[in-house]
């Protein structure tokens, strides 16, 4: 795997920092361009260009935190956020638009009815992304 362009969808979860570090590990030897993307999911009962100030402030913070992690591991992270109805669709759209070679997506650790579950976003990105996808699952939380 020698990706030249890597996309990191970040949701502001604890696993984001590990996603950035993994991207650095894979991308640095290939001098890959690494881009972080956050998707603000806008509920259907609101217009897409509604006032999203609170979400945007949160997005700024989590992307800056990711940039800081990137600096600590020696990469310059390009960051951006978009507003969309569904996160997975926006992520796949961006992956197509930007011609990325690899998507690394964080997977928060979730259990439902005794089973570890994969969320809708990760599932759909896995199935529909036009490139390779690595899903990095967060550490297990002790029961």
């Amino acid at each position: 795997m020698k990706p030249k362009r890597i996309l990191l969808p970040l949701a502001g979860a604890a696993v984001d920092a590990d996603v950035v570090r993994l991207a650095a590990l894979i991308g640095k030897p290939n001098k890959a361009q690494i881009e972080a993307l956050h998707v603000i999911e806008v509920q259907w009962n609101r217009p897409l260009d509604a006032d999203l100030t609170e979400d945007e402030v949160r997005a700024e913070r989590l992307l800056e935190a990711a940039e800081e992690v990137g600096r600590s591991v020696g990469i310059t992270l390009q960051t951006e956020y978009v507003a969309a109805r569904t996160a997975w669709s926006a992520i796949v759209h961006e992956a197509e638009q930007r011609n990325v070679d690899l998507v690394i997506i964080g997977m928060p650790y979730r259990r439902r009815m005794g089973q570890v579950t994969v969320g809708r976003t990760v599932q759909n990105v896995f199935l529909k992304a036009p490139c390779e996808v690595i899903a990095l699952r967060d550490r297990a939380v002790p029961a």
């Binding site: 945007e56 700024e60 969309a84």
Partner: peptide, 27 residues
């Protein structure tokens, strides 16, 4: 704010181009 077409017909995404030198902290 730049509205763009999404993947599927009728779908839209709004790309938010942030100011280069300022960080949003509130309205």
């Amino acid at each position: 704010r730049r509205p763009e077409r999404g993947r599927r017909p009728g779908e839209r995404i709004v790309r938010i181009v942030r100011p280069k030198s300022f960080r949003l902290t509130g309205k």
